[in-house]
């Protein structure tokens, strides 16, 4: 029995005949920010989708508090508290900001916290409160990302998995989003962050895994990786 919040053991996965992930091993500790970085096509999003049950695990297992969850369908994995903010936000476009947040608290066990969570999120992200009755597809990119994160927080995540939250945002907004992630983490939520923005990801996280071609190429404390010559050369452009 492991003490890790989430553990991925020897996981293989992919799309049909196309194998993307090969023998992935990683773990997430309670309370930390863990980042998974890598170039385009390294398998980061595939990893996210595999953990959240949208892609089948062909070998290996995914353990939450030591219990295997890899056989569960996506909606049951969400019910276990493994919550993904998908790449590209994926808001419900023809619903208002408020309705998008309400949908986040659809599950019975989080419904009781709906009011409390709404207040918390509107407090944290006053911009969403201002846009409460606006359709989600009329929001700016930054606001959409805020809403996607807010919607995930409505689900009381045990572990919040963010897939490329900085994608398509201006440098200023990237800073805002990373500040938000820090705030959420400080409030006690475990974060698994997948990023192409390697520099920011290394700065914000305690530990980092580097994915390359579907395998874990490097892992270690972010503070060490940020000074690693290979990482500097390959990802930081130094």
């Amino acid at each position: 029995m492991s003490n890790h919040l989430l553990e991925i053991k020897g996981v293989h996965s992919g799309y049909g005949d196309v194998k993307v992930l090969h023998d992935i091993n990683l773990y997430v500790e309670e309370g930390e920010i863990l980042s998974v970085v890598g170039a385009n096509g390294a398998g980061k999003t595939t990893l996210m989708r595999t953990i959240s049950g949208q892609l089948p695990v062909t070998a290996g297992e995914i353990l939450l508090h030591g219990t295997p969850v890899q056989h569960l369908p996506a909606h049951k994995i969400a019910a276990e508290g493994i919550i993904q903010v998908p790449e590209g936000r994926r808001l419900f476009p023809y619903m208002t900001v408020h309705e998008n947040l309400l949908i986040g608290s659809t599950m019975k066990h989080v419904r009781a916290d709906r009011q409390k969570n709404l207040e918390y999120i509107y407090n944290l992200l006053p911009r969403l409160k201002e846009r409460e009755t606006q359709m989600a597809n009329t929001l700016s990119g930054g606001e959409q990302q805020m809403l996607a994160i807010g919607r995930a927080l409505m689900e009381n995540p045990k572990i919040l998995m963010l897939d490329e939250p900085s994608l398509g945002l201006s440098p200023l907004l990237v800073g805002t989003v990373f500040d938000l992630i820090k705030t959420i983490s400080a409030a006690g939520t475990t974060v698994l962050l997948v990023e192409q923005n390697v520099k920011q990801a290394l700065k914000i996280s305690q530990r980092t895994y580097v994915l390359e071609n579907g395998v874990v190429a490097m892992e270690g404390p972010s503070s060490e990786l940020i000074d690693d010559p290979y990482v500097k050369k390959a990802f930081l452009g130094l």
Binding site: S52, G53, Q54, P73, A74, H75, K76, A78, A79, I83, Q84, P86, R90, L91, F92, P93, Y94, M95, E99, L102, I103, G104, T106, M107, R151, E155
Partner: peptide, 19 residues
């Protein structure tokens, strides 16, 4: 609301715990 969400994006609805 669950019905509308599923219609707009069934994969994301599953991430909200909707079957």
């Amino acid at each position: 609301r669950q019905l509308r969400a599923t219609g707009q994006d069934r994969n994301t609805a599953a991430l909200m715990g909707i079957n």
